[in-house]
Nucleic acid binder design. Structure first.
Length: 206
DNA sequence: CATCAGATCTGCT
DNA sequence: GCAGATCTGATGG
């Protein structure tokens, strides 16, 4: 199966966040082992104006440098002193917008994911941004890689999710961002058991 | 089920 | 110093 190409990634972050759902995230380890999962949850980060984004106000630091790369590059950052999280850069060079991959549904290499995570339940392997990074062994060594051409980390076509099956909610863990915390910028496949968190309590249950 | 402390790196004050 | 795009195990109802 071929890598998704540059054209796929080169769109504004909300469109990309939705387009990423249903696609296959692939991680190939040094020994050739292939780990893969279907993207089921994403968040869009809108760049300089987005108070929740690492690039808010045009900030450019050693950590977020990858956000300024061309669409289709990986922005992998370290947070809370423990965890790695992976984003897919959107739009074009110099425009620091990206989509956080929040959850995937494990497809290939589950036993190794279980070993990496020290967890057994399938729904606890990749149901969170730091969980999926740990399961797929994604860390600083993959920050800034080009997902269009890299052989260790890339995306495959999978199958797009129809608009009516995409649930929309506010982003997780950005309460500090004022009005931006309430914006509908989290997207997930409705009813999917591998999503990191269900819809806000009171929401419809599938 | 809800809340909470602790793990302890990065960037800003 | 402190808060953060998180997760885990412990504690209480």
């Amino acid at each position: 199966m071929a890598h998704l190409n540059r054209r796929f990634f080169r769109r504004e972050p909300v469109a990309l966040a939705k387009a990423l759902l249903g696609r296959t995230l692939v991680r190939v380890l040094d020994d050739g082992t292939r780990l893969a999962g279907r993207i089921v949850e994403t968040e869009a980060y809108l760049g300089s104006e987005d108070r929740a984004a690492h690039s808010y106000g045009g900030r450019r630091t050693a950590r977020n440098e990858s956000m300024y790369l061309d669409a289709g590059h990986a922005y992998v950052y370290f947070t809370y002193g423990m965890h790695w999280c992976m984003n897919v850069v959107a739009e074009r060079p110099g425009v620091p917008t990206a989509c956080l991959l929040r959850a995937i549904e494990p497809l290939e290499g589950l036993d190794l994911m279980r070993a990496h995570r020290q967890r057994h339940a399938e729904t606890d392997l990749c149901s969170g941004p730091a969980k999926l990074a740990q399961a797929l062994r994604i860390d600083r060594s993959l920050d800034g890689v080009d997902l269009v051409t890299d052989s260790r980390l890339f995306l495959e076509r999978g199958r797009a999710i129809a608009a009516q099956r995409i649930a929309v909610a506010s982003r997780i863990g950005v309460g500090y961002a004022g009005d931006w915390a309430l914006r509908p910028l989290r997207f997930y496949i409705a009813g999917n058991p591998h999503v990191s968190r269900a819809a806000p309590s009171g929401g419809p249950r599938i």
